[in-house]
Every structure is written in C-alpha cells, then in structure tokens.
Design a protein around this nucleic acid. Structure first.
Ligand SMILES: [Zn+2]
Ligand SMILES: [Zn+2]
Ligand SMILES: [Zn+2]
Ligand SMILES: [Zn+2]
Lengths: 132, 132
DNA sequence: GCAATTGATGTAATAACATTACATTAAGGA
DNA sequence: TCCTTAATGTAATGTTATTACATCAATTGC
C-alpha cells in the first residue's frame, strides 16, 4: 500500500496539508489548489482517498477534516491504532500510538466476538500551548 | 443535565431512535417523523442536541448518525468515556465503558499537557452475529 | 394576574461535506 | 500495437448541518 510515487494531484493535496497549521476540509484544500488547476471536489476527494490508503494522511472523523501524518508509524497493511489529540484553539493535532490502548481495545472487542476493521480515537480539547 | 421531562419533539426523536435497529441520520429521523408534524431538519437537530446533552443519545462521528443510549452509564456532568463497537453489517452498536482505557488516555493526554474535553472512540467492524 | 425573561418551536434559506455518473486521458503489460 | 487498468476532468446531485428570523409556551418576579 506504500506508494511508489504520488500523482500530481496527490502530491499537491499532500503538500497543502503538510504546510497547513491545522486540519483542512476537502473544500478548503480545493480552494487552496484552484490556482494549480483544481476545479472540482472530486479531484481533492480522490487524492485524499489514496493518501489515506497510503497512511500518509489521516481523516479526523469528528472534524470532517484531514491532516498530513506527522508520526511516521506503521504504514503497512496492518495499520497501527492511532489516537489523535486535537486542540480546539490552535488546531494542532498530535498523534499517539500506544500499544496498551490498542491491546485493551482489542481485548474488549474479542470479548464480545467483535472483529474490528478500523478504530477511531479522537480527543478534543486544549493543547499545552493554549492552556498556558 | 438530567432532564426533568422531555419536550414533545425530544420525546419523538428519542422514541424513533429507541425503536431503530441501527444508528439513524438526522434526515432519516426527520422522514420518520413527518407524520408527526416534523417539517424541517432543525426540529430534529435541536432535539438531538438536547438529548445528547442529557446523555441519553450518542452521536457516532464516523457515521454522522445517532443512537439511543443502551448502556445507562454516568449521565452526570462528568461523562464517562464510551467506546462504541459498530457493526458494518447489521448496524448494531454496543457501548463499552472501560476505566482502563479511560485512565490510559487520560495519562497520555496529561503527559503532553493536553486537557481533554471530549473523547471519541469508535470501532467499526463486524459483530459476533454477523461473523458467524 | 401580568410583564419580563427564558426556552422551545416553525419555517425558509443557505452553507458545508460528499458521491454518482460519464467521458476522457495516461500508464503499463501481453 | 492492443488491451487493461488507473487516474483525471466535469457536471450534477445527494447528504449533512447551520444561520436567521419570527412566533409561541413556560417560568419568574411583582
Ligand atoms: Zn500518522
Ligand atoms: Zn492549541
Ligand atoms: Zn450510552
Ligand atoms: Zn452485525
């Protein structure tokens, strides 16, 4: 699932996210890329879909927005569970990959014979900088 | 935050969710309540907002949908962290409230001076019934 | 009881997020 | 080259959520 090389659209979307200070919605990305020839939402959504598959972009479900991965964790087929801490004030997102959480959730799921395909963990709150 | 008594709209929305076999979107609820006088999305969203505050309805972020609470946990001001196991096949949602998860996430947050306001944990997958 | 306040409701319009459908083009392999 | 697959362009549409404003109901203070 690791990409050999990104397509032009994928590279542009990734670059936009990488330079952003906070999660971006698909439409915000679209607006930022109009100068580069983007005209329609689908151009963004298609790139995001691939980048997310590759594991180098994450979707934040509680925000309907996307961030570039800052935490080069396991990009392989068996993706690690990632918890996101999202600051409501500055938009900073930190990624936490913790085996204990992962194991515990796995145990709880197994206990009720639930086969987990994808796990979302998002903490909304205030980061250290914004709390000070 | 516990309600003394639900308003008519709140009661109707809650009843709809209670009788549903799977999470419902706001617009699905709206359609089901047209016979009872509902005409506009806001009637549903306003009721959902209150019911969610009361802790008797939960919003599933990864689904943009809502479920009635089935797990009479802490409805007080300090809400417990709840993990949801959501079956992609039958829509069944089970609620898991686990202190270990809660403590671990709390520790990880504190470690980076993050003040958590709200935590979302959602596992998407296949329940025991649908795996068999 | 009655004014003042607060919370809930009704309605329309619009904003924000995401997908379907279909035509076209680019890339890679037999 | 021919065939297949992946990516792209574009328009239209579908889905989810909010803003704005008028009205109505319940509660409180007098
Ligand atoms: Zn990451
Ligand atoms: Zn911050
Ligand atoms: Zn619950
Ligand atoms: Zn199931």
């Amino acid at each position: 699932m690791e990409p050999r090389k990104l397509t032009r659209n994928q590279a542009l979307v990734l670059e936009t996210l990488t330079h952003a200070e906070a999660p971006l919605s698909a439409y915000t990305i679209l607006d930022k890329l109009r100068d580069h020839g983007f005209r329609a939402p689908l151009q963004v959504y298609r790139a995001l879909e691939k980048l997310t598959e590759f594991g180098i972009v994450h979707r934040l479900e509680s925000l309907n927005a996307f961030v570039a991965c800052t935490h080069p964790h396991d990009h392989g087929p068996e993706k690690a569970v990632i918890a996101f801490a999202i600051c409501e004030d500055c938009g900073q997102v930190s990624e936490i990959s913790d085996p204990e959480i992962e194991d515990r959730l796995s145990l709880l799921a197994t206990k009720q014979q639930f086969r987990t395909e994808k796990t979302t963990i998002e903490m909304r709150g205030h980061c250290g900088n914004c709390t000070a």
